[in-house]
Design a protein around this nucleic acid. Sequence first.
DNA 1: GAACCATACGGAACCTTGTTCCGGTTAGCA
DNA 2: TGCTAACCGGAACAAGGTTCCGTATGGTTC
Lengths: 178, 178
Amino acid sequence: MTKRADARRNEKALLDAAAAAFVESGVDAPVRDIAAKAGVGVGTIYRHFPARSDLIVAVFRHQVQECAAAGPELLASSTSPHEALRRWIDLFADFLVTKHGLPEALNAGDLHAYFLERLVPVCAEIVGAATEAGQIVPGINPVGLLRGVGNLCIGAGRDDGYDARQMIGFLIEGLRKD
Amino acid sequence: MTKRADARRNEKALLDAAAAAFVESGVDAPVRDIAAKAGVGVGTIYRHFPARSDLIVAVFRHQVQECAAAGPELLASSTSPHEALRRWIDLFADFLVTKHGLPEALNAGDLHAYFLERLVPVCAEIVGAATEAGQIVPGINPVGLLRGVGNLCIGAGRDDGYDARQMIGFLIEGLRKD
DNA sequence: GAACCATACGGAACCTTGTTCCGGTTAGCA
DNA sequence: TGCTAACCGGAACAAGGTTCCGTATGGTTC
């Protein structure tokens, strides 16, 4: 059941256009703009991506995968589970901080679903290792931690005096069992 | 230059209606709904409150004042500056967590302006005291801290596994200079 | 208490943004 | 070449914020 050639072409054009639009205007870029940039009608967007959020997910899927894949590697290569946690969270934050509007969008609905589904198991593994090693307080919920870090990334692009990474650093430090 | 009686009456009706709407639907309650609940046209809202955000600010002004006022008191009555900081941040978080949609709204524009203007000096004072006492790491930006805590309150109403207060607790703990 | 007008009001209309719908077009195959 | 299932474009709809302007009225003056 292979797709028609024009459909495949349009889907790629849309992904490219969306990626470009997200870079220059943030993930809030209007659907019409993306359609125009791809040389396509809005209807075509909605056939390929039933909702705006599906387009966002599609654009960032690769990077989420990479972030997920990095988890086990960091756990193996770090000097301690807490160090691995810190480094992995940094990776996650780096990803979010560079995508204008993504952290806020993450709080509403479907993005949430995919991102968390993919990253929670990884986070859980690292948190579990750190807990077992007695390096962080027990009972930390991986979902909650991920959401917290995601929230801290909100507004990180603006030039006011907000340093998301610093705050995330404090949060991770506060997890320590001392 | 005193306002006309009907204008004053309508302003109060609007504030009451907005407060009620915010409680039952969150601060995202549509302007039209608020107008209807107050028995007033939308035009009237915009004469009294040039933008939606001004209405939100007006509704919560009192509580922000109270929170600001509590700062010095806590500093005086607590056993240590870090303890005062923790308690004051808890107060701030309690305020935010109980207002559906307020934390997210805080990130966009004008709310920001008023809330921060009022609370930053207070936060700065407590942070300064804790810093001088050598209880937290030096160089913490009060604006950043407030924004971070505000961000952590986002999505705190939902029944998924996110505990904003716990995350805030970790953040404050991570500020410690050990 | 009548007349006047600055002030205030209501709500239709406008703009933007997401989403749906459907008549027209076309790729791929017989 | 013709057929048709798959696909496309964009007008139309819904919802929410904001603006505009003709109408109504509180308060003041005589």
